[in-house]
Nucleic acid binder design. Structure first.
Length: 752
DNA sequence: AGCTATTGTCATTCC
DNA sequence: ATGGAATGACAATAG
């Protein structure tokens, strides 16, 4: 089905391209079934749409920001940049060849300087790197010596690597090494940047590889090597060979769509407009045959000769090359997107980060702000809900106060206690008892804070789990520190880790048991240890592997080695490589101790039968043969051990299953706990808002009150109290305090 | 050499 | 009483 779709899609795209080449533009997507993957996915690969790292890296690469001088993407970047510029030059493609030659000479002089004097300048300090590329003073060059051109662009971006990976100077390599060490600190593997590794890749890439990444790399290099320079225009033209067939299976419209989808022209992008949205418009115009007429606002200074003629095919090839490069870019840069900053000193303003990393950044900021939250009590009670929420979560003391004041019907308590937090010396209002103090204790609020941090703001899982241990200490369950109990991602990672440990795939199905029995009868087979480890967990994993199937079903251990050899010779390809003696030796080694014993005592049954036959049949079998006491004893031992072996395996499975279920339960409970804590925080927030309103109202009413002489009442001596009938009365504080104490006593008595 | 994970085995208990 | 399942503990082995 997939291949059918592929052929259909490819055929349709190719047809579209043909139409496009003769001037008819088609929107391929409209002809494609919705079930088919979008063209972008066809071109970029199915995973491209789901990989933020690729997205970022692509942007980095295209912007020139992410290009690390030591990055494997250097030459790749050149190619991408070159082809991108070709796209940009779509509206000015028709450049006389003579003019191109002139540019070549011009650029060669400049680029020779740039390549011999690699400046470790920094893309981050040059946020307009790509604007430089587009700047008018650089003049036309897109059709010139491409690598020189891009070498200069790279220099403008701060990248210092040589123009081609094969021409690295010693300084370049040294710089690469230095920067690599920085990236090692960031967690990037050296192989990503290893130049020799790259060379190996390029050597190996002549052979087909299943690896997707290397496939893309292969294709890129094939493309690179297949770039022919047009003798007239000086432009690189991709060779239309079999490898590139599907590169051209895009309509221009689709390419533009892809461009738009690939280049994040976000409104909030703080990066220089490496790829101006105008590009899309311009390319659109070009694709629609409007040539460069309306593109003066874009790249016009670079346009050497906005000639009227338009070589549509040439544009097509350029665009196809670009799209291919984007595809290569997206796929190849999936793994090295985060750390390809040109300079490690300063992060770019919009340094590409995966979402999770970005969250961590936010966390850092947030955490940096936390200390200031505690003194934010003033703002907390001054109507600043934002700071109050943070305060609420992070300052248990005040939250306790908050609760303490809530349940009181003494409005003075409610309203003045917050003030006391700040102005206790001024008002000298005595603190009153907290009727709801038990609602939230400090530990709870600490926990809320931590859970919130961990859950919402990407709090370091290690930190979170470390801190969580304080709260989980009473749970009796010690969670793996890798598993932040509150983080969904951690849940995934935990299950992932279990998967690596072979836990996933374990089934309790009875069919497993059957195979286990078989395996148990086979005995220990060290070289298949890894598979056997999975075997009893999920036999389906190896049932299609011939040699493993043999492992699972060879119960001939009591047979003579010669008899086994025959089986081995056609069951396992291993036999081809080893001599008969080795096979016998191999078989010998595969036999369990019981099998050896059984063979030594000439037991006439297989261990499988000994172990797995029902008791009745087993006894019948024994009755058929006159076995010595020793033999009988061995047979019964074999049976007992075999049974016990399977029982042990089942037992371990159950144990593991129980642990997994418990882990899942714990995670669910943690999630529930986190959710409840969040709800509690929300409630506290709303309560605080209500309290604020009441306080304002109280203050307003109190300020309006005047005594007989027209003077306002002193809040130190009077307070407003709720009367039992619902009215509000002004009461001297001494009297109010007495009433409050009485009320407290009554409440305590009721509790008793 | 020491550590860990896996697996087999034994002893024991329970059904 | 017997077979066998379940399980803790230990040992062997491999990586």
């Amino acid at each position: 089905m997939l291949s059918l779709k592929k052929y259909f899609t490819e055929g349709l795209i190719q047809f579209t391209i043909l139409l496009s080449l003769i001037g008819v533009r088609l929107d391929v997507d409209t002809y494609l079934d919705l079930q088919l993957p979008p063209l972008r996915e066809i071109i970029l690969g199915p995973s491209s749409a789901y990989s933020p790292a690729q997205f970022h890296n692509l942007r980095n690469t295209l912007d020139g920001y992410g290009i690390h001088p030591k990055s494997v993407d250097l030459d790749y970047y050149f190619t991408t940049r070159r082809l991108l510029n070709q796209v940009r030059a779509l509206d000015r493609l028709q450049v006389p060849g003579t003019a191109v030659d002139t540019w070549l000479v011009h650029r060669e002089q400049e680029s020779s300087v740039s390549s011999t004097q690699p400046s470790p300048s920094i893309a981050l300090e040059n946020p307009s790197g790509l604007q430089d590329v587009l700047s008018p003073d650089l003049g036309p060059r897109e059709s010139g010596s491409l690598e020189q051109v891009y070498g200069e662009e790279l220099e403008a971006l701060g990248a210092v690597a040589p123009l081609t990976s094969g021409d690295l100077t010693k300084e370049d390599i040294d710089l690469i090494d230095i920067l690599w060490k920085q990236d090692i600190d960031l967690g990037a593997g050296r192989e990503i940047f290893n130049y020799s590794h790259r060379q190996k890749d390029s050597e190996v890439d002549k052979e087909p590889s299943d690896d997707t990444e290397s496939n893309w790399r292969d294709r890129e290099e094939i493309l690179d090597t297949s770039q022919l320079v047009d003798g007239e225009t000086g432009e690189s033209i991709p060779v239309q060979d079999s490898c590139l067939e599907d590169q051209t299976t895009l309509s221009l419209e689709e390419c533009l769509r892809l461009l738009e989808a690939t280049f994040p022209f976000g409104e909030n992008s703080e990066l220089p407009d490496a790829v101006s949205p105008n590009l899309i418009e311009d390319v659109h115009r070009t694709g629609m045959g409007l040539s460069s007429a309306a593109s003066d606002d874009f790249l016009s200074p670079l346009r050497p000769d906005p000639g009227p003629s338009l070589d549509l095919e040439q544009q097509w090839q350029d665009l196809m090359s670009v799209m291919e490069m984007q595809a290569v870019s997206v796929n190849r840069t999936a793994t090295d997107s985060l750390y390809n900053s040109t300079n490690g000193d300063l992060p770019p303003v919009n340094y590409s980060l995966s979402p999770s990393t970005a969250i961590h950044q936010n966390v850092s900021l947030h955490q940096a702000l936390l200390p200031s939250c505690t003194p934010a009590c003033s703002s907390f009670f001054s109507g600043d809900t934002t700071s109050s929420s943070a305060f609420l979560q992070l300052s248990p003391d005040s939250s306790t106060d908050l609760n303490s004041t809530l349940g009181s019907n003494n409005m003075t308590e409610v309203l003045f206690q917050p003030q006391m937090n700040n102005t206790v010396n001024e008002t000298s209002v005595p603190a009153l008892v907290d009727p709801l103090g038990g609602l939230l204790d400090e530990a709870m609020l600490d926990e809320i804070s931590l859970m919130e941090l961990a859950l919402e703001e990407g709090f370091s899982q290690v930190q979170a789990s470390q801190l969580e241990e304080e709260f989980d200490s009473d749970s009796g369950l010690s969670l793996d520190s890798d598993h932040s109990p509150v983080s969904p991602s951690s849940s995934e990672s935990s299950s992932c880790s279990f998967s690596e440990e072979g836990a996933v795939g374990y089934t309790s199905d009875s069919e497993t048991v059957d195979l286990e029995g078989a395996e148990g009868a086979v005995g220990y087979q060290p070289q298949f240890n890894k598979f056997c480890r999975m075997s009893y967990q999920n036999p389906l994993h190896f049932q299609y592997l011939p040699h493993l199937e043999y492992v699972g079903h060879n119960h001939t251990y009591n047979m003579a080695p010669e008899a086994l050899e025959n089986d081995l010779s056609h069951l396992a390809p291993i036999g081809k490589k080893t001599s008969k003696e080795k096979e016998a030796d191999f078989t010998d080694r595969q036999m369990s101790r019981d099998e050896h014993r059984a063979r030594a005592l000439k037991i006439p049954f297989t261990n499988e039968k000994i172990i797995n036959l029902p008791v009745e049949e087993f006894n019948e079998m024994l009755a058929k043969y006159q076995l010595s006491e020793t033999q009988l004893s061995l047979v019964r031992d074999i049976r007992r051990r075999g049974k016990n072996k399977m029982a042990a395996q089942n037992c371990r499975k159950r144990k593991l299953d129980t642990i997994l279920n418990l882990e899942q339960d714990v995670q669910e409970l943690q999630q529930d706990k986190t959710r409840l804590l969040k709800e509690k925080v929300e409630f506290l927030k709303s309560i605080q808002q209500m309290k604020q309103k009441v306080q304002n109202l109280y203050q307003e009413v109190f300020d309006c009150l005047r005594n007989e002489s027209g003077q306002p009442y002193s809040p130190n001596h009077y307070s407003l109290q709720y009367a039992s009938n619902g009215s509000i009365i002004l009461m001297p504080r001494t009297l109010a305090d007495q009433q409050g104490r009485r009320r407290d006593r009554k409440q305590k008595d009721r509790r008793k």
